[in-house]
Design a protein around this nucleic acid. Structure first.
Lengths: 227, 227
DNA sequence: GTCTATATTTGGATAGAC
DNA sequence: GTCTATCCAAATATAGAC
């Protein structure tokens, strides 16, 4: 349908490199129709090239999927490490993790949906690597929840299950969020942080901690747009 | 690999009807490899029949997927309606909805994972119908949350977003739960209900409501095994 | 870097015998 | 109800010219 090329022309006034167009087309189509449901011909057509030209930039279809997933998992893990380094208290760490995760999934919906749903389409070798990177990220969340329970800031029965539940709830934003809604992304992220602080029964000196009362560094809130 | 037939023999001592074997094979394979990633030949082989025999029972591959989804969405909606009819107060309704949803997703993991991830593989006509049935179910959750906010039992900023977040968190159980863990299903479901009651800040007379203090009819807890 | 043309395998689905 | 054999469209990927 050549939508890729004409869209590029409309936005930029000139044709962008085929490389980027192919990447954009693949993430759009994988998110919409699934990896296995998307043909290499569709990707080429959407990017405005032939299949032969596509294979000048890419070795296999799976490579496109893998690029998308690394482009999600690596920035997420980097941000989580940065947050743990820069923020001290468990409730502030958890809040910052949630706000960044939600913001990232709302601003990278296509790529995060693909990462969330297409792990089973990977070959077993690369799949193990992707799962390992995802586990690194989840382990940071688990430890933050566990730390909060250990020092009495959070009160939950099972930190491991709670961390998984929180993560799945926040990842879900990628599946339903539409930018046309009444809520700004900053407010949406804050709202999720508030839900999570309630869920873990976060409290200081017997009084519940709300997301709006926390002072977080702006980068920890995930609002630096270097993605 | 003929695992379907030999598995049947080992469990029952005789060969079950091909119809059921085909259904079981399809849900196993769709959950593991995705709908588009599963071939009609694989399903037939796993069920211990030829592709020609398979087409004696089924018209199209999509019909197999649709049967799986209806087998998930219709019982879920029926249970939700039953709960709303039999249970009065918002915190008890929400708790019962959560416990049933979690229990159902843990005891029907393959089918619920397929239902949760393969809607995009449906043709547009049937897809609209599946989405409509899912929306019916979600609307019940939304109204229960909204009722609790309206009568002051729950305190959340945005009932609609909160209901979506809760549902996605509970649906996630199908993706990680393994029956070998230390937790019984009853306790797991109760734990999720507790997380949810915390999340909506459920309280009666100023004191937080916990899942263990609620008296729910056993069917509302979702422990009647007619699935 | 991009094209036309095609090799090769696999996909869903069917015909017709038993 | 189940089989063998097969049709035909679509899949990924490549060859070789420009």
């Amino acid at each position: 349908m050549r939508a890729g090329r004409s869209e590029t022309l409309r936005r930029t006034g000139r044709v962008r490199p085929a490389d980027g167009r192919i990447r954009d087309a693949s993430v759009r189509l994988f998110a919409q129709k699934g990896f296995q449901g998307t043909g290499i011909r569709e990707i080429a057509a959407e990017a405005g090239v032939t299949t032969a030209a596509l294979y000048h930039y890419v070795d296999t279809k799976e490579e496109l999927l893998l690029d998308i997933m690394y482009g999600v998992l690596d920035p997420l893990a980097a941000a989580a490490r940065r947050i743990v380094n820069e923020v001290d208290r468990p409730e502030a760490r958890l809040s910052a993790l949630v706000e960044h995760h939600v913001w990232f999934h709302a601003t990278n919906q296509l790529a995060t949906v693909v990462t969330d749903t297409e792990i089973r389409s990977l070959g077993s070798e690369v799949r193990a690597d992707v799962i390992a990177r995802r586990d690194v990220y989840e382990a940071i969340w688990r430890s933050v929840v566990a730390d909060g329970v250990a020092d009495g800031t959070f009160r939950v029965d099972d930190p491991r299950i709670t961390a998984i539940a929180i993560l799945q709830m926040c990842t879900g934003v990628a599946h339903w969020y539409r930018p046309t809604g009444p809520l700004t992304l900053t407010r949406l992220s804050r709202r999720y942080a508030d839900l999570v602080l309630s869920m873990v029964r976060a409290a200081r000196g017997g009084v519940p901690v709300r997301a709006d009362t926390l002072e977080l560094p702006s980068p920890a809130r995930g609002l630096d747009a270097h993605v």
